[in-house]
Design a protein around this nucleic acid. Structure first.
Length: 1101
RNA sequence: GGGUGUAUAGCUCAGUUGGUUAGAGCGCUACCUCGACACGGUAGAGGUCUCCUGUUCGAAUCAGGAUAUACCCACCA
């Protein structure tokens, strides 16, 4: 016993320590890899995965765990291949999901987001996110993920947010983003728009009402949503429908109790004659199809349902404020009362619901931002965008099925390329604005020119005239501070002051209203001093009701500099002003005073042209901006607006961007240098970010097929446009994890498996294997605890194989004191026996098989197939080679060699246990950065020497006979072997059989039972035949009858088999058409079977 | 309504260019403290590869159709 190693592998005790060791080694960071210098900018030898950022909403679930397992597998495999490997982790802010979650949390305390206000609420979300991120990060570590934490990113990072704004602005300038008034999917609960693909459909039974708008209306319509009919403006018919042809084009006036509507009769091919009455009431404002019809036919769009999901004033007094369902009930009653309903039918209906909260979606017209996917653009020097639309490019860069263009993105499995193309072809403009608080604010600033309200609501946005600024930053404001001056005789309490103050403050301007200055008062000098303390600067606007006061005080406030002083003033009429300047004259204002005096003369005139002249001159000569307001005592609202115009500020759009807008940039925004402020332009930033140069495009995008459209498609759209590059070379799509019955895992079903709980119970390696094995690209995987348990057993088996080797092999590799015997110094050891040869041959094939499988993304195959890791480790290595070595005597060099290779090959699958064993072996270097076993081409699999298989066969046969006859396995029996051509085998080889029986080579004393086993050589010929002929000394123990029965059965089977082969060989077609090798094989099989039959018959006699 | 999967042992799945007497793990049965492992070992039972029709010398594998089942997309009011 060389080492004290626990009997059972205990993952809980070693995993955290191992992870820490990896992390501290710095090897997750490609820049620290020993070979990183050699490969510095070698793009061919990079391997990059951008981790799909988990939502920052809480805990890791199995979906994440599986994703991490697959990606870590790829990453570790490639790292061991000696590539520059980067796996970049991060988290996504997931606007709607996160906001909904936090809303739920505060709702427990009876609060809503409005109670907190935008700022406080976002703070609360921030806390929540930080918490979740920590949880997720820790759990990601638990999974053994070898990702580079030093490059971790979050979609709301400074740098990433800047990219979002930049790309938005760029697209806006290229006309790819526009603001449009369109019908959108509206979730009344989230109070936000949703993209088309964020809407889910649920089948439900619904009542289909057949009715007329009023008695004299000629056409009966059918609808499941009667309440929307209050907003109808047309009835649509199929153009082929003969029944109502005469009405097409006519306009009817109807009244449903909410005023007269015009109903136009139109024809549209979308209308199905078979459904309902074949006539469709068109509600442009609340149905996607109807909206399109309204566009085509220029119909009025009456919005009758508001953003709160309730009927609005347009629906009529009786309905206003009612929920949709209440309104429906009421309207149906109205129809019944007026005897307008013809019938009610139950139909299946696809309900639209919000994918996040499940609330019913209301289609509503609204002003939103859209990405134009069909707009063709040309970007100079861009490889993709030469008179092409986003959609066209996104279609172009992805390989179609059977297409193998290396420059294009390849989707694995291939069939999803078809899905992708199909989806992309049908893509509509993408609504990217969300009325969610949490997320990237739309980088658009409006200057509301003529607002008289204190709030910018979405309604108002659609009507107010605005200047627009789209860019990465808020435009520089003209003013940050306002000083409101009031003249003698008017105080701050006067109506316009509080109003103006509030308006200015809403615009983010700090407002100062100094107390009344009066030069005649004794305290005026002190006041002036105090006023001087008010820190005015170039960004200050001084608003006054008296030009003189304004100018003078403004001047006083900043000494001799007028700067950009703005005077909003009334014509100068006050006779006291000259006195004021007299007083001012006592102070040393020099030139200013003179200038003022000069102009003050002119001020006494009320001639508007002179006023204009004054203001012009003031502007020109003194740099004063003037807003002249007509009448000091009666400011009209227009005049107020004029004042405000002079000092209006930019207000950012209140909406945020669709989460997928920012995650669409993920592959490259995460690689841009984090310290971005030193770069003035985006282009400069891109050009000087070393990681971007080195690691983009990424190698593989590994994710679930469920976000092919949400995310993959968006990344392709956005990255080709923004970077003139594809975001990734390959897309690997994994399936969903389901329960044993194939159901989705969900909280409501209670069938979920908590990955962390499983890790605690069975270890990370076991969990990883359970998700890797049985998974194939694009197909769902069923997972249940017994399965995880099974792989825990595998891990433990490997542990014990290693334990046995470590304990039995002569010391030497763990310390230098005792060299191993024979000293193993690396390289392929010499084989001495058949078994040695056999295991080494299999190991060679295992290397090839594993490498080939991983290269082609067949993770499960690598492990599970006949040539895979499991079979090699458990069956070949543990059950045969190790057992044989106990009988034959062990070969340390081979044991170590095979173990080392096996550990390397297993490492990407089960990193913890393999690393732990590696450490137990006393290795200094981490297994994680060991070199991947080299192997030859997969197509040249090593032929396995058949002799060992033959000996195995004998052993198995003996065991079977013992088993079936109740002879204890350990009891030694005599076995007679007939082996004519075994000259090349040594006695050591035969020791395999000696395991528990004596081999007697003469036929003396043989009882009547005979067993045969044979095997063919790789070239097909049978050169060696061995037979277990009997059990000389245990004959009495064998149940002769039973054995005879078995032999009889086997004879029959063999005879049947022979008939089959003979049938084939007698078929001339077969002999003529089949390849010679197949025919030859059949002949051999026949010969073999006939031989076998002969032996069997001999036995049965 | 379109599209895409899946259907092989009781369960979960392999079966990669058509040629295996169709395989594995779990479960089941019997036996076993044999120098690492009972989270183990040995042996065994268990399948008309959903059905039908083709193509072929030959089909679990390819084609067509049917059935079952799952998912995705779509503007059925």
């Amino acid at each position: 016993m060389k080492k004290e190693i626990p009997k059972a592998y205990n993952p809980q005790e070693v995993e955290d320590g191992i992870y820490q060791k990896w992390e501290e080694s710095g090897m997750f960071d490609p820049d620290n890899l020993p070979w990183s210098e050699d490969l510095k900018n070698d793009k061919e030898n990079r391997f990059v995965i951008s981790m799909p950022p988990p939502n920052a909403t809480g805990v890791l679930h199995l979906g994440h765990a599986s994703m991490l397992a697959y990606q870590d597998l790829l990453v570790r495999y490639n790292r061991m291949q000696g590539k520059n490997v980067l796996w970049l982790p991060g988290t996504d802010h997931a606007s709607i999901a996160t906001q909904t979650k936090v809303e739920k949390i505060i709702a427990e305390k009876g609060q809503t987001k409005y109670d907190l206000g935008r700022e406080k609420f976002l703070e609360r979300v921030g806390e929540f996110v930080e918490n979740s991120q920590n949880t997720i990060k820790n759990q990601t570590r638990k999974m053994g993920s070898s990702c580079d934490w030093s490059r971790e990113r979050y979609t709301l990072d400074d740098g990433l947010s800047r990219v979002v704004r930049k790309v938005f602005a760029k697209m806006y300038n290229d006309d790819l983003i526009y603001r449009g008034d369109r019908i959108v999917n509206w979730c009344p609960r989230c109070e936000s728009t949703l993209a088309d693909d964020e809407v889910e459909h649920k089948d439900q039974k619904a009542n289909l009402y057949y009715f007329k708008y009023q008695k004299d209306f000629p056409i009966t319509i059918a609808t499941t949503r009667p309440e929307t009919k209050l907003g109808d403006t047309a009835v649509a018919l199929n153009p082929k429908d003969k029944r109502y042809q005469k009405y097409i084009g006519q306009v009817f006036g109807i009244d449903l109790g909410n005023g007269v509507h015009k109903i136009k009769i139109i024809a549209d091919r979308e209308v199905e004659m078979e459904f309902g009455t074949g006539a469709l009431g068109v509600t442009p404002a609340h149905s996607m199809t109807d909206w399109e019809m309204a566009e085509k036919n220029d119909l009025e769009k009456i919005k009758i349902i508001g953003e709160d999901g309730k009927m609005n004033a347009n629906a009529g007094k009786k309905y206003e404020g009612l929920t949709v369902l209440e309104a429906r009930e009421k309207f149906v009653k109205y129809l019944e009362k007026n005897d307008l309903i013809e019938k009610v039918e139950e139909v299946d209906q696809a309900l639209s619901v919000c994918y996040r909260c499940g609330a019913l979606i209301e289609p509503l017209p609204s002003k939103q931002w859209f990405v134009a996917v069909d707009k063709k653009i040309t970007i100079e020097g861009n490889q993709f965008f030469q008179n092409k639309s986003l959609k066209e490019v996104a279609l172009e860069v992805v390989n179609k099925v059977d297409e193998k263009n290396e420059k294009k993105i390849e989707i694995i499995p291939e069939r999803f390329a078809k899905t992708y193309h199909n989806w992309m072809e049908n893509l509509h403009d993408w609504c990217i604005s969300r009325q969610i608080w949490f997320g990237h604010r739309v980088p658009v600033w409006y200057k509301t020119v003529a607002s008289s309200k204190y709030q910018v609501s979405s309604d108002e946005k659609s009507t107010a005239k605005q200047e627009i600024h789209v860019g990465t930053e808020k435009p520089k404001e003209k003013y940050e501070k306002a000083v409101l001056l009031h003249a003698w005789g008017s105080g701050p309490e006067e109506a316009f002051f509080p109003w103006l103050k509030k308006e200015l403050e809403f615009r983010g301007i700090e407002v100062v209203v100094p107390s009344l200055p009066n030069p005649k008062n004794p305290g005026f000098t002190e006041w002036l001093e105090e006023f001087e303390k008010i820190k005015t600067n170039e960004k200050t606007i001084v608003v006054g009701r008296s030009l003189g006061a304004t100018l003078a005080l403004g001047a006083a406030s900043r000494g001799k500099k007028f700067g950009n002083l703005v005077a909003v003033c009334t014509p100068l009429e006050n006779p006291e002003i000259p006195d004021f300047f007299e007083q001012m004259g006592n102070l040393d204002f020099g030139k200013i005073k003179n200038n003022i005096k000069q102009y003050s003369v002119l001020h006494s005139s009320n001639d508007p042209y002179i006023k204009l002249e004054i203001s012009e001159k003031l502007e020109k000569e003194l740099g004063i901006e003037m807003v002249v307001v007509e009448n000091a005592d009666h400011f009209s609202s227009e005049e107020y607006k004029e004042i405000l115009k002079a000092c209006d500020v930019w207000i950012q759009d209140l909406d945020t961007l669709d989460t997928w807008f920012s995650s669409g940039l993920w592959t490259f925004s995460t690689l841009l240098e984090q310290d971005h402020e030193k770069y003035k332009t985006f282009e400069e930033w891109v050009a000087n970010s070393p990681d971007l140069k080195k690691f983009h495009p990424t190698s593989v995008m590994e994710t679930g097929y469920d976000i092919l459209f949400f995310w993959i498609a968006r990344m392709i759209l956005m990255t080709t446009y923004a970077m003139d590059e594809i975001p990734f070379e390959n897309v690997y799509l994994h399936g969903m994890i389901r329960d044993k019955q194939g159901r989705k895992m969900s909280k409501s079903l209670g069938n979920g498996i908590d990955p962390i709980e499983m890790i605690e119970k069975y270890g990370t390696d076991a969990l990883r294997l359970s998700m890797i094995i049985g998974s194939s690209p694009g197909n769902d995987l069923k997972l249940y605890e017994e399965k995880i348990e099974g792989y825990r057993n595998f891990v433990n088996k490997l542990w014990n194989v290693s334990r046995y080797i470590l304990m039995s092999v002569d010391d030497g590799f763990s310390s230098n004191s005792n060299p191993p015997n024979p000293p193993y110094q690396g390289g392929v050891p010499e084989s001495k026996t058949l078994a040695d040869k056999w295991i080494l041959e299999h190991l060679e094939n295992l290397k090839r098989h594993t490498t080939h499988s991983l290269k082609t993304y067949n993770f499960s195959f690598a492990f599970e197939s006949e040539l895979g890791i499991r079979d090699f480790m458990w069956d070949k290595f543990a059950d045969w080679y190790l057992e044989v070595s106990k009988v034959q005597g062990k070969n340390d060099a081979i044991l170590i060699y095979v173990l080392e290779n096996l550990l390397k090959l297993c490492h990407p699958f089960i990193p913890f246990v393999t690393e732990q064993i590696w450490q137990e072996m006393g290795k200094e270097k981490l297994l994680m950065i060991e070199e991947w076993p080299k192997s030859k081409n997969y197509t040249e699999l090593t032929k396995i020497n058949v002799d060992f298989e033959l000996l195995k066969g004998i052993v198995i046969e003996v065991r079977r006979v013992k088993n079936e006859n109740g002879i204890p396995l350990r009891e030694k029996v005599d076995v007679v072997i007939n082996s004519e051509t075994r000259k090349d085998l040594t006695q050591v080889d035969f020791d395999i059989i000696k395991e528990n029986q004596n081999i007697i080579e003469s036929l003396a004393g043989v009882k009547s039972l005979e067993f045969e086993t044979g095997a063919e050589k790789s070239d097909g010929s049978i050169q060696f035949e061995a037979r277990v002929i009997g059990f000389v000394n245990v004959g009495d123990l064998i149940d002769v009858e039973k054995e005879a029965e078995r032999v009889e059965k086997e004879i029959q089977e063999t005879e049947k088999y022979i008939r089959q082969i003979k049938g084939k060989l007698d078929n001339k077609q077969f002999v003529r058409n089949a390849p010679a090798s197949i025919v030859k094989k059949e002949k051999e099989k026949l010969a073999e079977s006939e031989n076998k039959l002969k032996e069997l018959k001999r036995k049965s006699v």
